[in-house]
Amino acid sequence: MKDGLSVILKKYGKDKSQLVSILQDIQAEYNYLPREALEKLSKKMDIPQSHVYSMATFFRAFSLNKRGKHIVNVCLGTACHVRGGELILESLERQLGVGRGQTTPDLKFTLESVNCMGCCATGPVVKIGEEYFGHMTNDKVEPMLKKYRE
């Protein structure tokens, strides 16, 4: 864990305005924002812990909890909402057995919702990792997850 963080911190030096980019890099490295990393960042960059924490909790894209291998994003933007995004989310909640923002105990899936992915024409949209699934219906949920279950 230590190495990745040091590289990231070195890259940005003491430039405090880069806090969001640093947090993004940390999240890319560890898949979430580990508390120790944030504490170290605060110390190294001389930014109060409260500022780091405030920033990390403000943006939806950051997670302070360990996340699963596959991140399932359900779009609930206006277009997807109208086309039944909520129903897909509920279906995923049933299938994965976790609520919104939670991770399955086997650390395979984290279920999250977003407010628009910019591909409204194919709504309702679900994104798993980097793969997009458009025109979702409830009966497509299970086959979609199957691939990622192994």
């Binding site: 812990q49 409260s50 500022h51 909790t57 403000f58």
Partner: peptide, 20 residues
């Protein structure tokens, strides 16, 4: 000048809190 607390979260769940 110590910034011991900050506003955490956002929207309706925003509130002043100590870090972590």
């Amino acid at each position: 000048g110590v910034s011991a607390i900050s506003l955490v979260n956002r929207g309706i769940s925003k509130e002043p809190k100590p870090p972590f």
